[in-house]
């Protein structure tokens, strides 16, 4: 028997089995998300049944009810906190990453590892002083304060990610720009920024994901003025009455922006999750 025939015989059924297995696993993992999505389109009487209801006429009633129930202010707060903090993160992290890669400051490595270590600090360890600080400055229950915290929360990821994109720039381009006598600022604006724009977009998406999903700071530091979408969901903690369809509709709306952002950014997700350590 030649190796070629042995290989086809061995590989082919294997890859079909692998494919099937992978699909089964993926559907099992995805099922809770799918179920959330589906249940949001049910009537309450169809949502909590035993056995589960698989076939039904979809309705937008729950989504309408949620939007009618003051959901919009929470949505706007979430948008302000996540988009605002993400913009600020990019503005702060890009120059910082530059100073830690292409034009390194002294002891750049210490700064780099300082950033990453702050991302590892448990939020509960600093919540009380932050609370008191916000209280004394009149920034409690304030979306600006929350945005600043999210900015600091995402800075390490952004610095590491952007730095990794900067280091991937072809050296020749940078040197050519310098030889041509491009001024410092012009070099950054005209040469570097356009080249790392996709990287910045990816970094922005990753930061948006973490800010949008954040719950602990939001629930500790906001109440009536600045609560975000995850705080809205705490209204569904108790299990009284029929509300599963409505919860699913709310959860779908809450989760959808980040699911989409994550799907778009999935190529760079691992770089963000590993704080830039793995590409």
């Amino acid at each position: 028997m030649s190796t070629a025939t042995r290989r086809t015989r061995r590989v082919r059924p294997g890859s079909v089995v692998t494919g099937l297995l992978a699909w089964v696993v993926a559907l099992v993992m995805f099922f809770p998300v799918l179920w959330m999505f589906v249940t949001g389109f049910k009537q309450e009487s169809q949502a909590a049944t035993d056995p589960p209801t698989w076939l039904f006429t979809p309705t937008l009633e729950q989504f309408r009810a949620i939007l009618g129930r003051d959901f919009v202010p929470y949505l706007l707060n979430s948008l302000m906190a996540s988009v605002g903090s993400t913009a600020l993160v990019i503005v702060l992290a890009t120059p910082a990453a530059y100073a830690l890669s292409l034009a390194p400051v002294g002891r750049w490595k210490d700064s780099l590892f300082f950033f990453i270590s702050t991302r590892m600090m448990p939020p509960v360890a600093i919540i009380l002083p932050l609370y008191l600080m916000a209280n004394n400055l009149g920034l409690l229950d304030n979306i600006t304060m929350l945005s600043l915290i999210y900015t600091v929360m995402n800075l390490p990821i952004a610095v590491w990610m952007i730095r990794s994109f900067l280091l991937e720039l072809p050296k020749e381009v940078l040197e050519a720009a310098r030889v041509d006598g491009a001024a410092f600022g012009a070099e950054i604006r005209r040469i570097i920024l356009p080249m790392i724009a996709p990287g910045l977009a990816a970094t922005g998406l990753i930061c948006f994901i973490f800010a949008w999903n954040e719950f602990f700071f939001a629930v500790s530091l906001t109440s009536t003025n600045a609560p975000t979408v995850p705080v809205f969901l705490t209204g569904f903690v108790t299990s009284e009455g029929l509300f599963l369809a409505r919860l699913s509709a709310a959860a779908t709306m809450a989760a959808l922006p980040v699911i989409l952002a994550g799907w778009v950014a999935q190529k760079w997700l691992v770089r963000g999750l590993s704080l830039g350590a793995v590409k």
């Binding site: 809770p32 959330m36 959860a251 809450a254």
Partner: peptide, 22 residues
Amino acid sequence: RTLLITPFLVMPAAAALLWKHA
């Protein structure tokens, strides 16, 4: 791959309530 990464993307607060009730 896209389906498999989704559980990590779902807002943890939403996921927690979803698991609790559904």
